[in-house]
Amino acid sequence: MPTDRPRDNVAASTVDRLLRTFADLGACPPEGEPDPGADRRRPLPLGAQLPLWRAKKIERFIAANLDRTLSLETLASQVQLSCNHFARACKNTLGVTPRQLVLRHRIDRAQVLLRDTATPLGEIALICGFADQAHFSRKFRQEVEATPSDWRRRNRAASN
């Protein structure tokens, strides 16, 4: 019985391709470098990542609906996944939870509005989906480490 069967070659090349893909995604350290989290991290279960088309779809959906309440159920239904599977896959693929992803989009939109318009902070808060100006200011300060008005002052001056 030959030891070098075509089936073994296909399996080996598939494994090599998967390892290169995981390394490209940052799931594995580059060759020769130690993996600082190797003892803490469990291997990802199959299917616990969002395919590229689903990741792009959810990013577009969030960007288009920032002024709405975006629950985990709403986001998961957009990509036809259960809430638990979507939350796990989002964290594994994008590195953030769905809630953090929505917050990141809201803060990014707010920064564009703060830099490019004279819209009052209260209106920006509502446009970006925050409950009110205080909620917006608190979350903005946590993420950006500056208040919205200070950030606007620094970034409008820098762009002029």
Results as ranks from 00 to 15, higher is better:
Asp116His: 11
Leu75Met: 12
Asp108Leu: 05
Ala63Ser: 07
Pro98Arg: 04
Ser13Pro: 00
Lys56Val: 11
Arg141Met: 04
Phe22Tyr: 14
Asn155Ala: 08
Arg106Gly: 04
Arg68Ile: 00
Arg17Asp: 09
Glu123Leu: 07
Thr119Leu: 15
Thr119Lys: 15
Ala110Arg: 05
Leu19Asn: 09
Leu114Met: 08
Leu44Thr: 09
Pro2Val: 00
Ala87Ile: 00
Leu66Gln: 03
Trp151Asp: 01
Gln111Asp: 00
Pro6Lys: 03
Asp116Arg: 12
Phe130Leu: 00
Leu75Ala: 04
Thr93His: 01
Lys139Phe: 12
Pro2Tyr: 00
Ala146Tyr: 07
Pro148Leu: 07
Arg156Val: 15
Ala87His: 05
Arg106Cys: 07
Ala146Gln: 14
Cys90Asn: 02
Gln100Cys: 14
Leu52Gly: 07
Arg5Thr: 15
Ala89Met: 08
Thr21Phe: 15
Thr93Tyr: 02
Val96Leu: 10
Leu66Asn: 11
Ser77Lys: 13
Ala146Glu: 15
Leu101Lys: 13
Ala125Gln: 09
Pro29Thr: 10
Pro6Arg: 02
Asn65Phe: 02
Ile124Thr: 10
Pro2Asn: 00
Leu66Met: 04
Arg68Asn: 13
Asp108Lys: 09
Arg106Met: 07
Asp24Ser: 12
Asp132Cys: 11
Ala131Asn: 10
Thr119Asn: 07
Ala27Gly: 06
Leu101His: 10
Arg156His: 12
Asp67Thr: 11
Phe140His: 03
Lys139Cys: 14
Ile58Gln: 00
Cys28Arg: 13
Ala12Pro: 01
Val102Ile: 13
Val96Arg: 09
Ala118Asn: 14
Pro148Gly: 11
Asp108Gly: 04
Asp8Ile: 04
Thr14Val: 09
Gly122Ser: 10
Ala23Asn: 09
Arg152Ala: 12
Asp24Tyr: 04
Asn160Thr: 12
Asp16Met: 03
Leu75Ile: 09
Arg138Gln: 13
Gln142Cys: 06
Arg104His: 06
Ala64Asp: 14
Phe130Thr: 01
Ile124Val: 13
Arg154His: 09
Pro6Gly: 01
Lys56Leu: 15
Asp24Leu: 09
Ser82Trp: 02
Asn84Ile: 10
Arg60Ala: 08
Val102Trp: 05
Glu33Asn: 03
Gln49Met: 11
Val79Ser: 08
Ala87Met: 02
Leu46Asn: 06
Arg154Gln: 12
Asp35Gly: 12
Val10Asn: 04
Val79His: 09
Asn65Pro: 01
Ala110Gly: 07
Pro120Trp: 03
Arg109Gly: 02
Arg156Ala: 13
Trp151Glu: 04
Gln78Cys: 08
Ser71His: 05
Leu50Phe: 05
Leu52Pro: 00
Thr97Trp: 07
Ile107Lys: 02
Ala157Phe: 12
Arg54Leu: 13
Arg106Asn: 00
Ala48Pro: 01
Gln111Tyr: 03
Leu72Tyr: 05
Asp8Trp: 06
Val112Phe: 11
Leu18Phe: 15
Asn92Val: 14
Ser71Val: 00
